[in-house]
């Protein structure tokens, strides 16, 4: 393949992902409201369109048509930059997540991943560690106490949980012996899913993912009763929509990472033994990936509407005194697996 072919194929993939992401996020908000309604025994949005299915578009237009307010004491440049950082980080992460195996289309071999880099997992870690900036800048540049407190809280929270997240990932890397997401998925052949082999690591990773995405029960940066809206108190219109979008995009990222690292990615156990033809296999595998991701997204929402928010000191204690030691324990467990069972 020439360089131009590579660039064009990558651009098509990027375009597809961005369009799909925007649609998915819009409907995630709809499902979040429907699921919360179901959990609280209400009906949820049901006025716009059939069963409220056009509600997301109504929401988006409402947000875009609102007045964009920048507070007088705000640092204008940073105030504008912050939501874009949040969005950039959220979208750039999709580049390395494989949604299926290599396929052949019109004579080209196409990987179902934008960039199959051999340090993919580190790339994701690098970008998520930058996610803090969007929130921190938003908090500081707004020139408001509530925003600043929200921003400071979130950076403390994200730094703390990044530690146990990194150590949980180390367990996965030890077993797959690679940092490439594609290889990690391939290493989980059959039922050798990391969620089954290292349940402790799975739990610590999922909990850290909740904290990293600022979702309930860890949504302290925007705890309404104490901080109004936290870091996005002073945001309105399109910029607020940016943060909103980034939060849901991050949730999808977290679900996809959990699927890739722990739930076998696009693998269906022993599908190659069934003797199906190749196209069907690939379609089923992509379907499996989307199904697992969708299940994790449902899990995110389920937890949000079931568990109350932690107090700040409880959050920090959980992060440093429970999750961190557990993730270390997981590494020891993986080492035992490797030494004793020669996995």
């Amino acid at each position: 393949m020439s360089i131009w072919e590579v660039i064009i194929i990558s651009l098509i993939k990027i375009l597809l992902i961005v369009v799909l992401m925007l649609l998915t996020v819009a409907y995630l908000v709809y499902f979040e409201r429907k699921i919360s309604a179901w959990i609280q025994n209400r009906k949820g949005p049901n006025r716009v369109g059939w069963h409220g299915l056009l509600q997301p578009f109504a929401d988006v237009f409402k947000l875009l048509l609102k007045e964009d307010i920048v507070p007088e004491k705000a640092n204008k440049a940073l105030h504008t930059l912050a939501p874009f950082i949040a969005l950039f980080v959220a979208f750039a992460t999709y580049a390395v997540i494989p949604i299926g195996p290599t396929i052949e289309l019109f004579g080209y071999k196409i990987n179902l991943v934008v960039a199959d880099v051999n340090i993919g997992v580190l790339y994701v870690l690098a970008l998520t560690s930058l996610g803090v900036y969007g929130i921190t800048f938003a908090g500081w540049s707004s020139g408001s106490k509530y925003s600043l407190l929200g921003g400071v809280r979130s950076s403390a929270q994200m730094i703390s949980y990044e530690v146990s997240m990194g150590f949980s990932i180390a367990g996965v890397l030890l077993l797959s012996q690679s940092l490439s997401p594609t290889k990690i998925v391939e290493a989980q052949y059959g039922w050798m899913w990391n969620a089954i082999l290292q349940p402790i690591g799975f739990i610590t990773f999922v909990v850290s993912a909740f904290a990293e995405t600022n979702r309930l029960p860890f949504d302290l940066p925007e705890a309404e009763p104490e901080l109004v809206g936290g870091y996005h108190t002073e945001y309105s219109s399109f910029k607020f929509a940016g943060f909103f979008l980034a939060e849901y995009a991050n949730m999808i990222i977290a679900s996809m990472m959990i699927t890739t690292l722990y739930l076998g990615g696009y693998q269906i156990p022993y599908i190659d033994k069934l003797g199906l033809n190749q196209t069907l296999t690939v379609l089923l595998q992509v379907g499996a990936f989307l199904f697992k991701t969708a299940f994790m997204l449902f899990f995110f929402m389920w937890v949000r509407w079931s568990i109350p928010r932690f107090r700040y000191d409880q959050l920090m204690n959980l992060g440093w005194k429970v999750m961190f030691p557990l993730s270390l324990l997981n590494i020891v467990w993986v080492a035992v697996l490797i030494m004793v069972f020669r996995l």
């Binding site: 690098a126 560690s129 930058l130 803090v132 921190t136 500081w140 950076s155 403390a156 730094i159 990044e162």
Partner: peptide, 13 residues
């Protein structure tokens, strides 16, 4: 960028 500068910013803010 991800760890040290965040701590710096934390203090500066």
């Amino acid at each position: 960028a991800g760890a040290i500068m965040v701590l710096f910013l934390f203090v500066l803010m």
